[in-house]
Design a protein around this nucleic acid. Structure first.
Lengths: 233, 233
DNA sequence: CGAGCCCTTGATGCATTTCAACGAATGTGG
DNA sequence: CCACATTCGTTGAAATGCATCAAGGGCTCG
């Protein structure tokens, strides 16, 4: 059971979790050695689960490639999607006994898997790491607050526009085209509306020339300014 | 600048944040002395703010009495309420530069106020405390996820029922009557609907004999089972 | 007593869900 | 290689739910 810390995907993920200089604090070499010896890389096929709701939390995970969606089932058989996560997100690092949501792979994905009791040991041994993970947790909390805010907004079109702006932000400033890795149904369950309303919202944005959609999943934002405007009314 | 750790309100709040035995770990006496020397008790009148959105984060807060609501303004002049917090919640403990929401007192309230740089020092000096705060953060995260889930639900009645069940859970298993400290408008902004819809929802539950409301703010849950049912359809 | 605030209730119009139909893309078995 | 079934996205029409507008009652405070 070990991982290769030289892999670029793993380095990128850890940098995102622990900060750019996570290899440079005092004692970091020991930490790296410890981690690579005790962590394990798991691969998940499209549509399969990294873990499921109500599973006991035996491991923490760090996503290193592909993408996952975090979902919770409702009592009526529908579901809600909390988040789409990409590289470098922490999953299950809380001290809860059971997961309160599932992580489903949207594409062929991979994650690092670390035993929870070992994580505790790492935190005790390397307070610097505990601190950085704590920071990351706070960032995640802040992202979830933003999403909470979005869902509090009343109109559906607004929420779709904000969703698209979020995707844009995630890929960085350079590009304005991105691939939606998730199905319409997933987007709808994320922003809290029916598939049809979601589809209509996207169509409307298309017709107005604010975005263009190719092959159902390739979205180009043509007029970000108007999209922002659309998001706030 | 100091607080009296003997005060029952403060003890209760700290117990909620740091765990029942926070006075019993190794070095805890020093920690308690440090904290009480550097913390400050602040009182906030009903309707006043403990801190406001966009304020620089100079201090962290722990609520010790009364209740606060955490709100964020929207671009259209409306607002969204993230949470109602009672005793023992951490506020502003993240490493963000500015608050992304305001904390408004719903009743005469109080909080402990600690300088952020001093908090950092405390964390470095007492890893055990850092760990416990981290745990508490994870719990808060989990609560926010639950709220996210609620807002993802489509019907208004559902959300109101879930809100009431949340209030019930908060006061413990013993009672089935509680005082709503917040106005209808606040509840509405919390569950994401208009005041009128909120009012109608409560009326409907009343008429069906599932709850009863006295003097507008005193709610008694008469039939929890049917309330749960109501919440899931 | 009157002013102001909050909650409730009714009426109306709009937004969204639901039901239904269709085309495109994909996969299956003959 | 071709019917056929299946899945997914889109669009239309109808029904429903919610926001908005408007009015009235209860309460508090001056």
């Amino acid at each position: 059971m070990s991982i290769e810390l030289d892999k670029i995907t793993i380095k990128t993920a850890l940098t995102s979790c622990l900060g750019r200089d996570f290899l440079a604090f005092e004692g970091s070499e020991d930490f790296v050695a410890d981690l690579s010896a005790h962590a394990e890389e798991v691969r998940v096929q499209t549509g399969d689960y990294l873990f499921k709701e109500d599973d006991p939390v035996k491991h923490g995970y760090i996503s290193i490639s592909g993408s996952f969606m975090l979902e919770r089932a409702t009592s009526e058989g529908t579901r809600h999607i909390f988040a789409f996560v990409f590289t470098g997100s922490l999953l299950g690092f809380s001290e809860q006994h059971h997961f309160t949501f599932s992580a489903k792979a949207l594409s062929e994905s991979a994650a690092i898997k670390v035993n929870m009791t070992f994580i505790e040991e790492l935190f005790d041994k390397y307070p610097e790491i505990a601190k950085r993970v704590h920071n990351k947790t706070n960032k995640i909390l802040s992202m979830i607050l933003d999403q909470l805010f979005v869902l509090g907004q009343k109109t559906a079109h607004q929420r779709i526009a904000i969703f698209l702006l979020g995707m844009l932000k995630q890929i960085g400033n350079q590009q304005n085209t991105f691939l939606l890795t998730m199905a319409r149904r997933d987007v709808a369950d994320y922003v809290g509306m029916s598939i049809e309303t979601c589809s209509r919202g996207l169509s409307k944005l298309s017709k107005q020339g604010i975005i263009s959609i190719k092959d159902n999943y390739i979205v180009t934002v043509l007029d970000e300014e108007r999209l922002v405007e659309f998001a706030s009314k």
